[in-house]
Write a protein that binds this DNA or RNA. Structure first.
Length: 921
RNA sequence: GGGGACAUAGCUCAGUUGGUUAGAGCACCUGUCUUACAAACAGGGGGUCAGAAGUUCGAGUCUUCUUGUCCCCACCA
């Protein structure tokens, strides 16, 4: 079924087609109504299964599901606007396109928001209990999920709402369990006791990607550890940024070759404050020239020390509890329960009292922070679940190396490969309550540990036992996100939907989740479906404030899309976001920028008003094929054809900014500045009874205008849909029920003639030069209607048609334009300008003193001669003639000829001006 | 330390196999309420393309270095 055959049977969304458009577009008058119309028409819903009867596969884009932590910000607004642009474009082009909407439960981020909320209410999460806490989180999700969906509609996103998926709903949860169980049974998920990133505030392990390293100005402290059996005052001085971890020290290490410490090899030192004895070990890891050359080894609280500890079989002493306070048998009584930062000061103070503190130096170093809670991460030894990544990473790297998957901009490839080639296993367990519960069970009878697809397993696979305990932890939120290319389509059940929508065509997302999300989706799809989830990944720009700082809640520098919509309208938001978004990199955005979009909408609104006005007098609109097209008409249509061609080319390569600039130029300049203005003049020149010619004008301008609406619709859907409804249909542009499902203009449907376009451009240049002379020399306005203008054409275009000269005359607002042959002499007392292709003279007589023009003309001649000099030098160079391509040489020769002609003509004019000046004196 | 960039008009940025005299939007200046649009129209001014060297007949574009800014990854206690 083609779109065009769905002829209008539903009521129009518009109150009245003949109603005058208001003077100023007010988006609030129509945006809500239009969106309702789209929804009622179900225009964005995709019927799956259609394509298997011979239609092409469905063009699909997966929306990166926004977190339900809070409402959307302009970062979403900008990134999603681009997606909606592309999906609307494809829908109009192909007849079907699916944008799959979703919401992400955002495990840790949402849990934190709920905890904060509880804290504000004075409720502790533990007193509330797990079940009630999850209920609170669900309420949070309902509230913000609802708000987000409202925002989507307000911005005009054309998602297929019937396919809305949520990472924590039943189907998606089943997919998560299925994936987990499969990987578990294959041995790709395992449990391991090792050092993890611990967030003492949220009291959970974090993935490496949830840790943010910040440069901090701190101190490096020098602590003296007395040597066992040594003289009083004999000690080794260690350098550390974390004195409070000394109770967990298991050794001090020096470099084996460090001559300063040879005598201590094999000896022991006494840990101050606890009097525990620890060995002096040697390890190449120690840098002799850093600090004191003596390193304290604290395996339980430092990743590097951990490795040293493992190498030397030292064991580890954990001295911190889950909240980050000191605790344990090795911690002296007075330090028990003291927070790590308070303990730092206490240790320094105590050592000072003992004379074992040797001072401190300011020290800049990087400190890991939780990107969630913002507190300092504590490395902690504990058991967590991991996914073995090496196999996944290899595959994901290979597909990119072999060019099966590509990035826009492509430089992300290196980042991708570097990460995958150095990948660490993925820690997927979190000590949280909000998320997918880990489907691992322990049989209480035999102790067997197994993963289960069932909500509640019935019997132990090993001993038939019937009571089990489930792992209390939940999965990393990305463990559901990485299934996103599959889970919205019924996976893992055998599903036709999957055939329809998997793989999708392109992923459009922010570059900062390339590892967490993009890479892992690639891995999951390759693993579970043996296919890439998408072959192209387009990274949108990051939205920042004017200073280049990323929008953030804490800084309060963000822009709320709803504020933008209230002040400027959704179309202005979308247009502006697309217009200022660079290719990659960052968008520096401020509220004022949305005037760009607002102005454009204003412009297209008024163009429509004008054309609607023309339609009032003429009911008959001819097909284009039946019209004889004059220069501006064919010129405009050709420009339209170029625009269609270039836009398509840009969009295919995700060059959205170039595409939008092309469209902007067409609408504002080609259509409004030149097309409509020429159309007005044509109407004025035609006699009242020349109805046929007027109908031809109308046909062309209406066609060019409706194509503009169609071309712009994916970017500014509301205003174009609204205007489209007011304008009469053009016979060459069949209409569907709505603009959003009408056909996108295609090159083959637009008459074009490059030679005529060239001529129309030449005429525009001539008109601009004449206007320039009038204004630069401040000719009195009263004289305009009687000005004589002389025109020489050197380009290969003929101006025999009086209508064309008349059009120049009218658009340039002069009295009359006379055509001269290139050999003729320009009249005396005139102002001259031109290019290589033409020359114009505005005869001014004694209106103004032309001595200034004499000076300007001589400067012009000089400039042209300079240019000629350069060209001649090129042509005299044998190297140039020998090595430059033939077309370049030909062009250069042609250029030389044109320059010579121009200079000749200018000199002639110069002479006559001089004579006129003399004569006038 | 490793990697990725960026540096073009006052501001934000285009400039995709090197090829006429480098463009746009905003801002600025001048004129105009010309019956779609003053949120507009018409016109104008403004850039030794960060600096240096090299490759080339020819460099904003390619190579190297220098300077300045940003991002990512890793991390020395």
């Amino acid at each position: 079924m083609t779109i065009e055959s769905k002829q209008s049977s539903s009521p129009s969304p518009h109150p009245s087609k003949v109603a005058e458009l208001s003077h100023f577009p007010n988006p609030q008058d129509y945006e809500g109504r239009i969106y309702q119309f789209w929804q009622d028409g179900e225009f964005f819903q995709v019927t799956s299964g259609d394509h298997r009867q011979g239609s092409p596969p469905i063009y699909t884009i997966l929306m990166p599901p926004p977190n339900v932590t809070s409402q959307l910000h302009m970062g979403h607004g900008a990134g999603y606007s681009i997606q909606d642009w592309l999906i609307r474009w494809r829908r109009m082009k192909d007849g079907q396109a699916a944008w799959i909407p979703g919401l992400d439960h955002a495990g840790i981020a949402t849990q934190m928001m709920v905890e904060k909320q509880l804290q504000a209410e004075g409720i502790s999460k533990h007193s509330l209990g797990r079940d009630l806490f999850v209920k609170r989180a669900q309420q949070w999700k309902e509230k913000y999920g609802h708000e987000i969906l409202n925002q989507f509609r307000a911005i005009g996103f054309s998602c297929d709402w019937s396919r809305l998926a949520y990472t924590l709903d039943n189907k998606r949860s089943y997919a998560v369990r299925y994936a987990f169980v499969q990987l578990f049974n294959e041995g790709l998920i395992y449990r391991s006791h090792r050092l993890v990133n611990w967030d003492p505030s949220l009291q959970t392990a974090l993935g490496d990607d949830e840790v943010e390293n910040r440069m901090v100005s701190g101190h490096i402290f020098y602590l003296r550890y007395p040597v066992k059996g040594g003289d009083a005052g004999q000690w080794l001085t260690v350098a550390t940024t974390r004195p409070e971890t000394m109770f967990g020290d298991v050794a001090v290490a020096v470099h084996p070759d460090d001559e300063r410490f040879q005598q201590y090899h094999g000896k022991k030192v006494i840990l101050p404050l606890t009097h525990r004895e620890i060995p002096v070990i040697t390890d190449n890891y120690v840098k002799q020239d850093f600090g004191t050359g003596v390193l304290k080894i604290t395996p339980a609280h430092d990743p590097n020390d951990y490795l040293v500890g493992v190498r030397h079989g030292l064991g580890a002493i954990d001295i911190l509890n889950d909240q980050g306070a000191l605790q344990g048998d090795d911690v002296p009584k007075s330090f028990q329960g003291v927070d790590r930062f308070a303990a730092r000061k206490m240790v320094v103070k105590s050592l000072k009292e003992l004379g074992l503190f040797q001072g401190s130096d300011p020290h800049k170093h990087s400190v890991p922070y939780s990107s969630r809670s913002g507190v300092v991460i504590e490395p902690k030894l504990c058991a967590q679940w991991y996914v073995k990544m090496s196999g996944f990473a290899k595959q994901a790297a290979t597909v990119v190396r072999q060019g099966e998957m590509s990035f826009y901009p492509e430089n992300w490839q290196k980042t991708w490969l570097y990460w995958l080639d150095n990948i660490q296993d993925w820690c997927i367990s979190r000590q949280l309550w909000w998320g997918h519960r880990i489907p691992v069970w322990t049989c209480e009878n035999c102790g067997h540990v197994f993963a289960s697809l069932e909500d509640q397993p019935h019997r132990c696979p090993k001993c038939d036992g019937q009571t089990f305990s489930q792992d209390p932890d939940v999965l990393d939120t990305w463990f559901s996100s990485w299934l996103w290319p599959l889970s919205p389509f019924g996976w893992p059940d055998d599903s036709n939907e999957l055939d329809d929508f998997f793989p999708s065509q392109v992923l459009i997302t922010a570059p900062d989740i390339i590892f967490q999300w993009v890479a892992r989706m690639t891995m999951a799809s390759l693993k579970f479906q043996k296919k890439l989830p998408f072959k192209k990944v387009f990274f949108v720009a990051t939205v920042c404030d004017k200073k280049g700082q990323k929008f953030s809640k804490t800084l309060g520098n963000g822009i709320d899309p709803m504020d933008v919509i209230a002040e400027y309208g959704a179309d202005a938001l979308r247009f502006t976001a697309a217009f200022i978004a660079p290719q990659g990199g960052r968008i520096k955005m401020s509220m004022d920028d949305f005037n760009i979009g607002k102005n454009f909408i204003h412009k297209i609104w008024h163009a429509s008003r004008f054309i609607l006005g023309l339609c009032d007098n003429t009911s008959n609109i001819k097909p284009l094929a039946s019209t004889t097209k004059n220069v501006w008409q064919l010129g405009l249509l050709t420009e339209l054809a170029y625009t269609i061609d270039k836009t398509e080319d840009c969009l295919n390569n995700f060059q959205t900014q170039a595409a939008l600039r092309t469209l902007y130029h067409y609408v504002w300049h080609a259509l409004c500045d030149w097309g409509i203005e020429a159309c007005k003049e044509s109407f004025r020149m035609l006699s009242a009874d020349d109805q046929e010619k007027k109908e031809e004008c109308l046909s062309v301008i209406l066609f060019a205008h409706e194509c503009a609406l169609r071309l712009m619709h994916p970017v500014i859907p509301f205003v174009t849909e609204e205007l489209w409804g007011h304008l009469p249909a053009h016979p060459d542009l069949p209409r569907a029920k709505a603009l959003c499902v009408s056909k996108y203009p295609s090159l083959t449907e637009v008459p074009s003639e490059p030679r005529v376009h060239e001529k129309w451009t030449l005429m525009q240049n001539i008109i601009q030069k004449i206007r320039r002379l009038k204004q630069v020399y401040s000719l009195p306005k009263q004289s305009y209607a009687t000005l004589n203008v002389y025109l020489k054409i050197m380009a290969n275009h003929r101006f025999e048609d009086q209508e064309e000269l008349a059009l120049i005359t009218r658009l340039a607002q002069v009295g009359i334009v006379h055509l001269l042959s290139p050999q003729d002499t320009m009249p005396a007392k005139s102002l001259i300008d031109g290019t290589l292709y033409f020359e114009v003279a505005v005869e001014v007589g004694d209106l103004i003193d032309i001595s200034a023009e004499v000076t300007r003309l001589s400067a012009q001649i000089k400039q042209a001669q300079g240019h000629l000099g350069g060209v001649e030098k090129k042509l005299q160079s044998e190297a140039f003639l020998a090595r430059a391509s033939e077309s370049v040489v030909t062009n250069t020769k042609k250029q030389k000829q044109q320059l010579l002609e121009k200079i000749g003509s200018l000199e002639k004019t110069y002479e006559s001006l001089l004579n006129a000046q003399d004569g006038g004196l």
